[in-house]
Design a protein around this nucleic acid. Structure first.
Lengths: 216, 216, 216, 216
DNA sequence: GATGAATGAGAATTCATTCAT
DNA sequence: AATGAATGAATTCTCATTCAT
């Protein structure tokens, strides 16, 4: 892979991005193809065909194949995650905020199943060193930061336990939601994902044990 | 195109497997390389080098590159999951069983970090159609079946809530554990993964809410 | 395995074929290399080099190596055989037609020695199942059909014996001509092949026996 | 291909050949496999399996894969062609001799269809330079030499025309017989090949023309 | 900006041959 | 003599990327 992509080139690309809807066409096409085939199985030719452009055109908007995935995280996913934050802010209590976070998470991923598939697949690749996908980590981190804030508010409010290892709680919630989305994807998106939000929040808050066990 | 996979051929391979440690050498090497680079970035040449054999030797033990991943699931992972079941059976109460399951899960994955990495990465690929990786799905399903049984026992015992959507509970637990493992992998395996078992089970059972909230 | 041979793909290839002389360059180069080395001994790299293109370029015009041979029969050879039919039609009597057929056969093969070599070699491979070389059989059959028609006309005219087993006569003529071409190839193309036409036709018509023997 | 095969090695092989039936087993197996798949598509492993020996064993009896084909011509085919000569000698008149030659040719090839297939295929490969298959040429030449002698005798006897170009007559007969055998092979060996001998000889002697035409 | 033909490095896989047992 | 596991050179084919038009 040549690095031949100086600052001027990057600027030219950034400029194009704003003027032209082709950038978005290609990005959407790529996400669709990645979702269907996986990143490595997808070819530039397939993406170009799906986007209705020539192969070479892709290189006017993206540095290389990896860059498409990076842009996916940088533009498409980031925007989604920013909506999460907005939804959270609409809530008052911590529980409300948590519920809003999870509901919007499920909602956004249900709305864009291709994004969901690519996000889930690539986020669990631990070998993306090559792709310099700090972007991916950033995204997950942003999500978990929101959780942290909400839980801390809950602890202040007295609605959430104070004896929690916050680092673990973040993973616990993040992982559970991810897996629910994963299931939904595997099922072929047959059922309503958003309806899982309330039962999920209930599990987070109350757990699965009865009073008997909880007091043990 | 030769089918090159007739009964005799498969038998020859199966026979070799038992007599020879090379099968294991290659499988370990492959898992290491897959863990470092990801399946698709890994080349047969790298695996051969890591295993200390010639490229062609790999084809004496594996049908092709995909087959290595399939064998990984079929032999290496299956064996681990069977140990989970054993551990579960050592417990009496449902909570004990759940704790044993999660503890052995974390333990086994901590013991073999490469396996953990490959398992986590490939399990979240929704595009493995080509690999006929029913094996992967089977593995996850087996895991969730154990959870189901345990929770049902807990409901009978009265230690677990009866108003649970079992399908969701399975994902909830599976996802949370997976994400905890993922975190540990991303951290570089710095801390003791097994010590997360008790806090995790606590979260599953009691949730994160206080009495106040739970009664809402 | 991708089928990589959908209708659009084939169409793209067919389109290129007309616009571009590269298709012909590669086909000529391939026939030359096949003639020198035999199909199986020839490599894509050799053909590419001979054609003055990159290895990959070949795959823009041909599905795979086998396809080159198939195209050879489908386009190059077919065209030659159609000229045979034209030449035959120029004759009036059956003997004239037979003479024209054989003369043009020898002429065309003399004009394109590489084609002659490849044709002779591949036509006698009985193991070309893989190549779906119905094309080859078709070609030979077309040739023998012409012979049949001519002989039948001769029988009607009274210039050819009526007590002939037509199936045998076709092989008899086809085989003799083929072998004369083979000899010429083996000799290195030293002598004038076309001059063999008249003596050959004479042998077909009159045989090698004297009146004495013929009357036996 | 290494040449590492000094005189001592050759001698060792030659000695073995006589003592051991494995040589013949392997040769028969090879011919069978070559007939089914073609020389280049056949692998040593297939031949070994067919012969019921280990791959390495083949190299105790044959220098390399090419050598198997060479031995086929040198021992198996030669022996057949020597029988032709014997049969020819049983005839008195030239026509009788020609008939005996062709009959025994068809008979031997019908008796050993695998030999027939391999012989026909390899004889028409003009690209066997690598195989140093002078042996093949020798075989064909031997055959055509017999024809020459017979025709010359016929000319002396007055049963065959004196105005013949002998070089052409040889090809004419050789080619016609070969093609009749080829047809029989392609047909799957369904009919009796030997019964073609008389009609063929008739065509050679009398040709296909009527008196009318012959006198032209 | 857009195109898509051309490139060639790179990867999987095969298989003749060797050699330690 | 016989074996068959191991080797690694050789080959086909793919596909990201470039660049002339």
């Amino acid at each position: 892979m040549k690095t031949g992509n100086d600052v001027r080139g990057r600027f030219a690309i950034a400029t194009k991005r704003k003027n032209n809807d082709k950038y978005r066409r290609i990005l959407e096409a790529a996400v669709k193809v990645f979702a269907e085939q996986g990143f490595h199985q997808s070819t530039i030719a397939q993406i170009a065909k799906e986007a209705g452009v020539a192969d070479g055109t892709i290189y006017l908007y993206f540095k290389n194949k990896d860059d498409i995935l990076i842009q996916f995280y940088q533009y498409k996913t980031r925007q989604v995650f920013q909506r999460f934050r907005k939804e959270v802010e609409k809530g008052d209590s911590a529980v409300e905020k948590l519920r809003n976070l999870i509901r919007s998470h499920l909602q956004e991923f249900q709305n864009d199943r291709n994004m969901a598939i690519v996000y889930q697949a690539e986020t669990h690749q631990n070998q993306n060193r090559r792709l310099a996908l700090e972007h991916i980590k950033d995204m997950s981190k942003m999500y978990r930061d929101i959780i942290s804030e909400v839980v801390e508010q809950g602890q202040d409010e007295g609605s959430m336990r104070k004896d929690l290892y916050l680092g673990l709680v973040k993973r616990f919630i993040n992982g559970a939601v991810d897996e629910v989305i994963n299931s939904w994807i595997h099922s072929g998106g047959k059922y309503d994902l958003v309806s899982m939000a309330d039962p999920l929040v209930d599990l987070f808050i109350r757990g699965i044990g009865t009073e008997n066990v909880r007091r043990q």
